[in-house]
Amino acid sequence: MQKHTANSVKLGVFVLAGIFLLVLTLYILGKNKGMFGASFDLKTHFRAVNGLVKGNNVRFSGIDIGSVKNIVFVNDTVIEVTMSIERKMKSIIRSNAVASLGTDGLIGNRVVNIAPARGEAPLIKEGDLLPSKDEINTDEMLQTLRRTNDNVAVIAEELRSTIHRINTSAQLTELLEDRTMSANLKASFAHLHEATEKASALMTDASATLTLASQGKGALATLLTDTTLSQEIRQVVKKIKQVEESADRLANDLNQVVVSVDKDYNTGQGTVNALMKDSLMAAQLRQTIDNVEKGTETFSQNMEALKHNFLFKRYFKKIEKEEKKKAVQKKSQ
């Protein structure tokens, strides 16, 4: 009898364990599908659902919040998907949230993804129609990929052509094989480096100068801050202006002279005209100059004769000695 009771207990445990596991499994599956919690319906429209079936999950920002309840045709281009959503999501999802189709992993089940959108919108209500975004179709992706491939083929062909031209270019080959080029480049870089260093030093000096100037020291600071200097500069500028005005007047006078001369020349009157156009006067003037030259030469001979005359010889020697003395003094200085 005791053995019979023990067997009955074991059997009871066995049966209850089996029933418990079955119920637990069904409960978890039901809970996953939102069968036991309070829920409400939301709708959205798609052009194509791409394999979505009843019972597929609905996610909001990646979290499972419900399942697809029904899928019906509205017309030949619109399919209405009704989703059963957990009631607690009523206080979170807004009416501008966007529904889209996705896949659970790379090859997993289809899912409806609801994503929040920017901007303010009221919270959703029972039976609201959410805006939807059509999924990128695989065929469309392949078509885009095909266009990309075509473009890549064109680019590759052009690249090949360019490389061929580079390979067959004599000038480029010569340039590449020119060993002096690298030396020149090196030298250029050295000069560039040197120039950069000088520029750097210059900038350092400028910086120091500016620092001094900002501290009120140095010539630049004086130039920038000394009021008397600016006064003097102003006066200098004023004088330069006066000189400029004098120069203007002089130029005007000269201009008047030139105009007068030009007038005389054109009218055949005046001294200038006589000097420039009267050949007789020019001949007389030349004769006069010749006479003056001859007179000067004769005077020079007379003076030389005076130097050698005993009455004046002493005087000229004295002058010669003084000049020599001055020359020696200048050298010693």
Binding site: L26, L29, N32, D64, N109
Partner: peptide
């Protein structure tokens, strides 16, 4: 496992 199981997997099997 339970995310991918459906009632139609469990009930007919049982």
């Amino acid at each position: 496992i339970f995310d991918h199981l459906l009632f139609m997997d469990v009930v007919p099997a049982v």
